[in-house]
């Protein structure tokens, strides 16, 4: 057995040095990805700060301008995604997905918010992917993961429930009703999904509180008769909601 002994030694050590090399490569790759993602997170924060303006009393009227600004910023992510894409091997998207999961959720959310503020419509997945300059299909390599996109939509719901409150404070009484319809429809959509017991499901479970919050706002303005005065002076530009599904 002594003769095979030395054979075993060399095979063990070569196996482990190969593994060590694999680990080192893996870590280098992750490091590069982390750097690329950090830039994207920075952009996402800037966009968020810009859009935060709509919650201020004067901000709602400026929404179109803010959206324009946010769109401009969002354009930069396209290049950032392209840079990230170069660092990730074509067929290993999910090996490193965790690194950009958060930021792609966040970007889906800001894109959805921009679309909502502009047209009061739900963003499509294609639109969201276009904002980031990626594909919607897994086959194309770098894409917007469906679950990330859905997480983004759920973030939109909680942001809108906040907007409902702030729009009342700003004297715009019809917006909460429209937001309520919108979120209801979103909820109906999510209820179509058979979710597993994962983070998406957890986040979805929070959606009902957003709905409740908006409904309370609608209730408050209804019983005070604020809602029925369908035109609040000075907000003419905002009064052309696209139908939100209740036809």
């Amino acid at each position: 057995m002594a003769d095979t002994g030395s054979d075993a030694v060399s095979s063990v050590s070569s196996t482990f040095s190969a593994f060590n090399e694999y680990l080192t490569n893996d870590q280098d790759m992750r490091e590069e990805i982390r750097v690329a993602v950090r830039a994207m997170e920075q952009t996402a924060r800037e966009i968020m700060t810009t859009l935060e303006g709509v919650h201020q009393t004067a901000g709602l009227k400026e929404a179109p301008a803010l959206c324009q600004k946010a769109r401009k910023l969002l354009e930069t992510t396209e290049g950032q995604f392209a840079a990230l894409q170069k660092k990730v091997p074509m067929d290993q998207y999910y090996r490193f997905h965790d690194h950009w999961r958060f930021v792609s959720q966040r970007l889906s959310f800001v894109a959805a918010l921009i679309i909502y503020l502009e047209s009061e419509k739900l963003i499509t997945r294609e639109e969201a992917a276009k904002f980031m300059g990626v594909s919607t299909k897994r086959e194309d390599g770098f894409h917007l993961d469906l679950e990330d996109f859905l997480q983004g939509l759920l973030q939109l719901a909680s942001e809108l429930s906040r907007l409902a409150i702030n729009s009342v404070t700003a004297g715009e009484y019809n917006r909460p009703v429209r937001i309520s319809n919108f979120i209801q429809e979103l909820n109906a959509g999510f209820r179509l999904l058979n979710l597993k017991n994962d983070s998406l499901r957890k986040r979805f479970d929070g959606l009902k509180y957003d709905i409740k919050k908006v409904e309370e706002v609608v209730y408050d303005i209804s019983i005070r008769g604020l809602k029925t005065s369908a035109t609040v002076p000075g907000h003419g530009g905002e009064e052309t909601p696209k139908s939100t599904g209740v036809e």
Binding site: L122, E185, A188, G189, L192
Partner: peptide
């Protein structure tokens, strides 16, 4: 779900695609 939302609304249709994929 039918009770709450219109079957043919864009949102519901989009979500049906998502449902399928998930």
């Amino acid at each position: 779900v039918k009770l709450i939302a219109e079957e043919n609304s864009e949102v519901v249709q989009a979500f049906r695609v998502f449902q399928n994929e998930l």
